[in-house]
């Protein structure tokens, strides 16, 4: 399968300090399901930011959908970003918008007509079990409900890559299982999934998933098979 994401010797430095990410090299296949693990502060969020184009690397090469995105001009960024769905670690729901409008936002940004977006948004809210709360503002939603709105917003536009940063951080194990089931369903529809988590229990829940491990800014096995463990289902390790 074609590589949908490719990192080569990527380094990221915030300000003047030491590098947060060091010599990160890996590639992700189209339609794969990947976990990114590692202790808190290892640089998982930083790596995902590079992936969803919220940050440019200090050095190295990043290719998305076969194109170099490091030198991509600003006006081409929106087009790439619309192909990537993101569940942010802190959700980043727009506080003034209802759950419905938050989920509808990517479609509105993409220029979908109002009459064409009501049904998909309602279906998506039903899918994450939030039909009843469609008119609620984020502040009135529980942490888990906010997380599900964030997930609904990330997938509504049928992205080619779904990036989720600690998506089960704020939910109980049962809800975590349901969310994971959601990701798996998307994965089966062909979406490439990248989930950062330090929750080891999660890793065993998706049989087809592969795992990358980040420690103090380095991929654990950067020179080997680019992934750790090199190949095969996580559950097997």
């Amino acid at each position: 399968m074609a590589n949908i994401v490719q990192f080569e010797n990527v380094g990221l430095r915030y300000g003047q300090g030491t590098e947060t990410l060091v010599d990160v090299s890996f590639s992700l296949s189209e339609g794969g399901f990947y976990f990114l693990t590692g202790p808190s502060g290892a640089g998982k969020t930083s790596l995902l930011k590079l992936l969803y184009l919220a940050q440019r690397p200090s050095r190295g090469l990043i290719r998305l959908f076969g194109e170099d995105v490091v030198t991509l001009s600003r006006n081409r960024l929106p087009g790439f970003r619309r192909r990537i769905g993101v569940v942010f670690q802190d959700f980043r729901l727009v506080p003034y918008l209802s759950a419905f409008d938050n989920v509808a936002l990517p479609l509105r940004v993409a220029g979908v007509e109002e009459r064409d977006l009501v049904t998909p948004v309602e279906e998506m809210l039903a899918w994450v079990g939030l039909s009843e709360r469609s008119g609620a503002r984020p502040a009135t939603l529980s942490g888990g409900e906010q997380q599900r709105v964030a997930i609904a917003r990330a997938v509504i536009g049928r992205p080619e890559i779904l990036v989720a940063d600690e998506p089960t951080g704020n939910v109980d194990p049962e809800m975590a299982g349901r969310l994971l089931y959601l990701f798996d369903a998307l994965h089966k529809l062909g979406t490439t999934i990248v989930v950062a988590t330090h929750d080891v229990h999660l890793l065993s829940r998706v049989s087809s998933a592969e795992m990358m491990r980040l420690d103090r800014g380095r991929l654990s096995d950067p020179t080997g098979a680019l992934r750790y463990p090199p190949r095969g289902p996580v559950a097997a390790s």
Partner: peptide
């Protein structure tokens, strides 16, 4: 600023 960042990351253009 927060809303702008989110809009950007959802693929909104500067003009939008």
């Amino acid at each position: 600023r927060g809303t702008i960042d989110v809009m950007h990351l959802l693929g909104a253009t500067d003009v939008q």
